[in-house]
Design a binder for these strands. Structure first.
Lengths: 217, 217
DNA sequence: GATATTATTTGAACACGTTCAAAAAGCGTG
DNA sequence: CACGCTTTTTGAACGTGTTCAAATAATATC
């Protein structure tokens, strides 16, 4: 069932795959090449990973874990919503960094609703929860209006997904423009949160939250 | 070069493909099946369309044209930003309606940056311009603060892309939830536009516009 | 230790999107 | 009509992700 040898082989295939993804890109890394490089047969690779996409799901999981580690460190001693947001989001992109050049392929296999890798879907529930938890950590210890607090982490995660999408398209060196976007958007979001209790703004925000709840699931 | 016969064959292949996409879905419609159904050889289909994705690009173009027709009609006699927004966006989804069940595949081939079908890319510049123009038509004759007006159509188009993404994931009957989202979000956006001149909000909006400009291209 | 059961491995085979060299058809020019 | 040139058509071939029945190895049961 769950022998040590088996787990070891699975890990070997996965690590070989991720290494090849990084060095050759996603499209150019064939399942046959992964199998050969890992010293197993093609069928064996498929015994452990039902599809090439499933390898991407592992990549997603690993990157979230990596983001979490980086974010936790970066958040220590960082105060204020704006800076804490920056820390979390920059951490995410740092973790994804090595995979930028096949971001397109990543999106192609990740976004289709029926895909196992779809970040909104069932299979990635855990990873998504972990990612949202990072934003819970971000707002912990910051001043956020109570009516906004429960929904905020998920909204921030959603915005983060948007940033990742932007990042995938970003062809500037070192994805400089995405970094600019983050540094510009973080204070804006912090400001928006802070004015959200004002009488002119609050009804709008509350209506938006209600809409989100109404439309969900 | 551009013989009538040739154009006719091309149109035949395209229409056969779109019809099969609608009836069987994208993934299950193979290039071989399209060719057979259209009565041409596989190589001929590829002579006219360099890839399966290119057929999707045509679909995108057609759907934008269709949206434009529907929106223009729906906008006649419709006043107020909120209602005009609803008209335009509902028109878009009406046009896309028959293709909902392969929205996932659509996204998979549309979003990768290197894809010919990518709505942000070069190949779809024209179709994108047409789509943005619809939102120009939407705000024509509505009250929009001058500092916001030039950028607004593109922002609305971007939001519309978000709605389409939501729609692709929407598994409720007749995509009811997406319709709710539109009807809920349109008045919110209209409200946001109207309060954007207020002293507390305006600096935030201006800063966001500046960020958009800074980060673009 | 022998045998049955389960887990793992294998590589051939399938269908697909795509490419390509060669054939066929269409066209203009003398 | 005959000749060259371009446009169009063809189907075999390639490499891909994926499936699967059969073979092998590992483990459990007696």
């Amino acid at each position: 069932m769950d022998h040590a040898k088996s787990a070891q082989t699975k890990a070997l295939v996965l690590e070989t795959a991720l290494a090849m993804f990084r060095s050759k890109g996603f499209a150019k890394t064939t399942m046959r090449a992964i199998a050969t490089e890992a010293g197993v047969s093609l069928g064996s690779a498929y015994y452990y990973f039902a599809s090439k996409d499933e390898l991407v799901l592992e990549l997603y999981r690993e990157s979230v874990a990596e983001q979490r580690v980086r974010a936790t460190t970066a958040l220590v001693g960082t105060t204020g919503l704006s800076d804490r947001l920056k820390a979390a989001v920059h951490s995410g992109l740092d973790a994804l960094g090595p995979y930028h050049h096949f971001g397109g392929a990543f999106i192609a296999s990740a976004l289709p609703p029926q895909s196992a890798v779809n970040p909104f879907g069932e299979a990635s529930r855990q990873a998504r929860g972990d990612a949202v938890a990072i934003f819970e950590e971000v707002i912990d210890g910051t001043k956020v209006p109570a009516f906004l607090r429960p929904q905020l982490p998920e909204l921030l995660w959603l915005a983060y997904m948007g940033v990742v999408l932007f990042w995938v398209y970003d062809r500037s060196g070192d994805q400089r423009r995405t970094r600019m976007l983050i540094d510009g958007a973080a204070p804006l979001i912090a400001k928006l949160v802070s004015i959200s209790r004002l009488p002119v703004v609050r009804p709008l925000v509350e209506e938006a939250l209600a809409l989100k709840a109404r439309v969900q699931a």
